[in-house]
Amino acid sequence: MHHLDAGQIKKLKIFRDLLPNEWDQLYPLLSHVWVIEGEQMLRQGERAHCFFVILRGHFMIHYNDGRAITLNQKGDIIGWSSVSFPSEYTANVTALTKGELLCISGTEFLELLQSNSGLVEKVLKKINKFIQTRPQIGYLQ
């Protein structure tokens, strides 16, 4: 039940280079999430279960010490800690406006590792590239 169809989602940077069979494996893991203005989606220190890809909306990633960055580009990624060790969210995330995101369970995504490690690595590389282009404000990886 996606607001955007598969064709639109495939154009997102994170999914762009996937081969058809890789997409077939990943697509069932995607689910659609809507948030309202002011909603705190993630809490720092909480167990990281999903990562999100922004479809629409403006989001603030903020730390308990008051530092923050904001993301509003379609295809930006939030909550990547769910695919790393230790898997706890390293920041809080609050929606500044109402928004739409794709949610991917970190556990289910990593379960693909045994059956298609190439796919997992492709996506992780995209996530890594995205993180490195974000302003580095000294948070824990």
Binding site: E37, G38, H58, M60, H62, G66, R67, A68, T70, N72, N92, T94, A95, L96, T97
Partner: peptide, 27 residues
Amino acid sequence: FSLPALIEKAEKIGISHAHSVVSHLIV
């Protein structure tokens, strides 16, 4: 200033839709 702190204070002084106001100003 800290952005979350600004939003918190904005809400306290009665600015409605403080989050989207801040979003608007950032954009």
